[in-house]
Lab assay of single mutants.
Amino acid sequence: AVTGSQTALLLRAFEKDRFPGIAAREELARETGLPESRIQIWFQNRR
């Protein structure tokens, strides 16, 4: 499950760019500790 702090970080990124590229998703994966594929799905679901 995604924690509150991970969600906050993802929401901030989403406000800046609703369609992040692979580099941005990989950076978010490093920052959150989540797999990049999970980040991609999160953005798809959020849109």
Score class of each variant (00 low, 15 high):
residue 12 R to N: 08
residue 24 A to M: 12
residue 46 R to S: 07
residue 34 L to F: 03
residue 45 N to F: 07
residue 25 R to Q: 06
residue 11 L to Y: 05
residue 20 P to R: 01
residue 7 T to E: 15
residue 17 D to V: 04
residue 44 Q to E: 15
residue 9 L to C: 09
residue 38 R to Q: 14
residue 7 T to K: 13
residue 29 A to Y: 02
residue 44 Q to M: 08
residue 40 Q to L: 14
residue 39 I to N: 01
residue 31 E to N: 08
residue 10 L to E: 01
residue 43 F to L: 03
residue 15 E to W: 09
residue 41 I to S: 12
residue 20 P to D: 01
residue 3 T to S: 12
residue 11 L to H: 05
residue 7 T to S: 11
residue 18 R to G: 05
residue 47 R to Q: 07
residue 34 L to K: 01
residue 19 F to H: 09
residue 30 R to Y: 06
residue 46 R to K: 13
residue 38 R to A: 15
residue 2 V to T: 07
residue 47 R to P: 03
residue 22 I to Q: 14
residue 24 A to L: 10
residue 16 K to Q: 10
residue 29 A to D: 00
residue 30 R to L: 08
residue 9 L to R: 09
residue 6 Q to G: 03
residue 11 L to C: 13
residue 23 A to Q: 12
residue 2 V to H: 06
residue 25 R to E: 02
residue 41 I to K: 10
residue 36 E to R: 03
residue 12 R to E: 11
residue 33 G to Q: 04
residue 37 S to W: 15
residue 41 I to D: 14
residue 44 Q to L: 06
residue 2 V to M: 15
residue 32 T to P: 00
residue 10 L to N: 00
residue 45 N to C: 13
residue 36 E to K: 04
residue 31 E to V: 14
residue 15 E to Y: 11
residue 16 K to V: 10
residue 28 L to N: 00
residue 30 R to N: 06
residue 23 A to Y: 07
residue 17 D to G: 04
residue 12 R to V: 09
residue 5 S to R: 14
residue 10 L to Q: 01
residue 38 R to T: 15
residue 20 P to Y: 02
residue 19 F to T: 05
residue 37 S to P: 10
residue 23 A to C: 12
residue 26 E to A: 12
residue 13 A to P: 01
residue 4 G to D: 15
residue 24 A to K: 10
residue 20 P to Q: 01
residue 16 K to N: 10
residue 35 P to Q: 07
residue 44 Q to V: 08
residue 1 A to Q: 13
residue 5 S to K: 13
residue 9 L to I: 15
residue 14 F to T: 01
residue 1 A to D: 13
residue 28 L to C: 02
residue 8 A to L: 13
residue 13 A to K: 02
residue 47 R to K: 03
residue 32 T to C: 05
residue 37 S to Y: 14
residue 6 Q to E: 04
residue 1 A to W: 13
residue 25 R to M: 15
residue 7 T to R: 14
residue 8 A to D: 11
residue 1 A to T: 12
residue 17 D to H: 07
residue 25 R to G: 02
residue 17 D to T: 08
residue 35 P to A: 10
residue 35 P to F: 03
residue 22 I to E: 11
residue 44 Q to H: 10
residue 11 L to K: 08
residue 43 F to S: 00
residue 28 L to E: 01
residue 33 G to E: 02
residue 41 I to R: 09
residue 19 F to Q: 05
residue 14 F to K: 02
residue 1 A to C: 15
residue 27 E to Y: 08
residue 42 W to Y: 01
residue 13 A to N: 03
residue 45 N to D: 13
residue 7 T to M: 15
residue 1 A to G: 12
residue 9 L to H: 08
residue 21 G to Y: 02
residue 2 V to S: 04
residue 21 G to E: 06
residue 39 I to L: 03
residue 20 P to K: 00
residue 18 R to A: 13
residue 20 P to I: 04
residue 41 I to Y: 08
residue 38 R to H: 12
residue 47 R to L: 09
residue 40 Q to D: 15
residue 29 A to V: 06
residue 16 K to M: 10
residue 19 F to G: 01
residue 10 L to Y: 00
residue 6 Q to I: 14
residue 28 L to W: 01
residue 47 R to G: 04
residue 1 A to N: 12
residue 38 R to C: 15
residue 39 I to C: 03
residue 17 D to I: 04
residue 2 V to P: 10
residue 27 E to C: 09
residue 38 R to G: 07
residue 13 A to F: 11
residue 19 F to R: 04
residue 16 K to W: 06
residue 13 A to D: 02
residue 1 A to K: 12
residue 9 L to S: 06
residue 6 Q to L: 08
residue 6 Q to C: 07
residue 28 L to H: 01
residue 13 A to G: 02
residue 38 R to M: 15
residue 14 F to L: 03
residue 2 V to A: 07
residue 47 R to I: 09
residue 13 A to Q: 04
residue 15 E to T: 07
residue 39 I to T: 01
residue 14 F to E: 02
residue 34 L to R: 00
residue 35 P to E: 09
residue 27 E to W: 10
residue 43 F to H: 00
residue 13 A to S: 06
residue 37 S to N: 09
residue 20 P to H: 02
residue 19 F to D: 07
residue 38 R to L: 15
residue 41 I to N: 10
residue 4 G to A: 15
residue 29 A to C: 05
residue 2 V to C: 03
residue 23 A to L: 12
residue 45 N to K: 10
residue 31 E to W: 07
residue 18 R to E: 08
residue 42 W to I: 01
residue 45 N to G: 06
residue 35 P to W: 03
residue 29 A to T: 04
residue 17 D to S: 08
residue 44 Q to Y: 09
residue 41 I to W: 12
residue 5 S to F: 14
residue 26 E to C: 14
residue 24 A to N: 04
residue 31 E to I: 14
residue 43 F to I: 02
residue 25 R to A: 04
residue 4 G to T: 14
residue 29 A to W: 02
residue 31 E to T: 11
residue 32 T to K: 00
residue 25 R to N: 02
residue 9 L to P: 03
residue 25 R to L: 15
